[in-house]
Simulated scan of single mutants.
Amino acid sequence: MDMLSDKKKLLNREIQKLGYDSLRVAIFNQKDKNRMEWQTRIEYDLDTGIYQIYSLGDRASLIGKITNYTDFDSAKNIFLNKLELTVKYNKLRVSRGKQPEYSSPLWDGE
């Protein structure tokens, strides 16, 4: 579990560095724990050694598909890219006068 703890710390540092602290994320929680609407998640399956990345929508339902990666660097890059897309998407919604998925200083007041 120390491996996941170190990787979780690394991801949290990256999120802070990018200024994405206000985004809804779950890092290495169990699939049924701490689920929130409009959340981006990265999980690790200990049995298969696979990282899983996916997003939740309204009522914490799955959006799209779960993508699987065997190496952490690929999973990390895709996870951070999903967060960047979340910011861009919600900024676009606000700029068009639509409601964002949820409130965040990253797009509120755009």
Rank of each mutant, 00 (worst) to 15 (best):
S95V: 03
L106M: 08
N34A: 10
G97C: 04
E14A: 05
I63D: 14
K8S: 14
N81G: 13
L10E: 15
L80A: 11
R13V: 11
K91G: 13
R96W: 01
I50Y: 07
D108H: 03
N29P: 06
L92C: 10
G19L: 00
D2Q: 04
N77R: 09
D73T: 05
R13Q: 14
P100S: 11
S22P: 14
D21E: 07
P105Y: 07
G64H: 00
Y44S: 02
G97Y: 06
S104I: 01
G64P: 04
L10I: 11
L83I: 06
N81E: 11
I42W: 08
N34T: 11
I42L: 09
E14L: 13
D71R: 08
I66R: 15
N68S: 05
I66L: 05
L83W: 02
E84N: 08
L23E: 15
N68D: 12
Y102T: 07
L62R: 13
L62Y: 00
S61E: 11
Y54M: 07
V94I: 12
D108E: 11
L106W: 05
R13N: 15
T70P: 08
A75K: 06
L62M: 07
L23V: 07
R41E: 06
D58P: 12
S22Q: 04
D73C: 00
I63A: 13
M1E: 15
N81V: 09
E37K: 01
E14G: 01
A26P: 01
E110C: 07
S5G: 08
T40H: 09
Y102F: 01
S74F: 06
G57W: 03
W38Q: 05
T70S: 13
L80W: 03
V25M: 03
Y89G: 03
Q30H: 05
N34E: 11
G49D: 12
L10V: 04
F72C: 11
G64V: 01
E43P: 02
I42H: 10
I53M: 10
L62V: 06
D32Q: 05
K88G: 08
L4K: 06
F72E: 15
E84W: 05
I27E: 15
R13G: 09
K98H: 05
Q52I: 07
Y54C: 02
S74R: 11
L18P: 10
Y102R: 08
S5T: 14
K8N: 10
E14W: 00
T48N: 13
P100Y: 03
A75P: 03
L85F: 03
E37V: 04
T48G: 06
Q30G: 14
A60C: 04
G97T: 04
M1S: 12
Q99R: 09
K88W: 02
I15K: 10
G109W: 02
L56C: 00
L80N: 10
L11A: 12
S95T: 05
G19I: 00
F28I: 11
E110H: 03
L83G: 07
L85M: 14
